[in-house]
Simulated scan of single mutants.
Amino acid sequence: MFNIANNLTLARIAAVPIIVVLLYYPNKTTTFLALIFFIIASITDIFDGIIARRFNIVTNFGKFLDPLADKLLINSILIMLVWLGWVEAWIAVVIVGRETMVTGLRAIAADVGVVIAADKYGKMKTIMQMISLCPLILHYPLLGIDFVPLGTALLYIAVVLTIFSGINYLRRFFKDLHRAA
């Protein structure tokens, strides 16, 4: 259960309270440190899956924990950014709502023995959310450059992908559940 891939996932979860605390006291230094922790945590999302597949150490614990870690990381940061007034609340509601819906649908599907794996749209959504949050976490200009408009534009793209992947997941859920019945 505690192989290298799962430990990377656990490290991603452990980074969340550190990032939240750093954002709770926002200034140029703390937001920069929060950004560094967020980038490192996001990178673990890439490597935990690669390592698990390459070394054949994929576990049910890891299959459960990896998407949970992603949701915890992204949703926590979004909530903090809304609290700081740096992101509009409706964006967090759409993203957190989609994640809650997918988690619920996965539980229903699993209850009848159906596994609905993440697809390319869900992975694209997660990547775009992580990329868009970086300049928003930084918030303050770096080397005289304000990256917030870029982060905001990327976050809108992430919201579109979030909605699209949620609809796609819902469609697959009903199709796979109908097939299982």
Rank of each mutant, 00 (worst) to 15 (best):
L81Y: 03
F61T: 02
G122H: 07
A14E: 01
I137Y: 07
M1W: 03
N168K: 10
I77K: 00
W83E: 04
S132I: 10
T103F: 15
M101T: 05
C134T: 12
K123T: 00
I51S: 04
L8D: 05
I91M: 15
I167K: 01
L78E: 05
R172G: 13
S42G: 15
I157M: 11
G122E: 08
R179G: 06
N6I: 01
L84C: 00
N56R: 10
R171H: 13
S132D: 10
K120C: 04
A11N: 09
T162C: 14
I13P: 02
A180Y: 09
Y140Q: 13
Q129N: 13
G166S: 06
R171A: 09
T162G: 10
I57E: 13
T29Q: 14
V16P: 05
S132E: 04
I39D: 04
I95Q: 04
I131R: 05
P149M: 11
Y140L: 08
F64V: 12
L142G: 03
D45I: 00
D70T: 06
I43V: 15
V94C: 02
T126Y: 14
G97Q: 12
I39R: 09
A110V: 11
I116M: 05
P141E: 08
I163C: 10
L143A: 15
T9A: 06
A109G: 05
D119G: 14
P149I: 12
R171W: 13
L133M: 14
L155W: 07
R54N: 10
F173K: 11
G62S: 07
I43K: 04
V102P: 08
I163H: 11
F37W: 10
I19K: 03
T44G: 06
F61P: 00
G97A: 06
R179W: 12
I145W: 10
A153S: 04
I163T: 07
A117F: 00
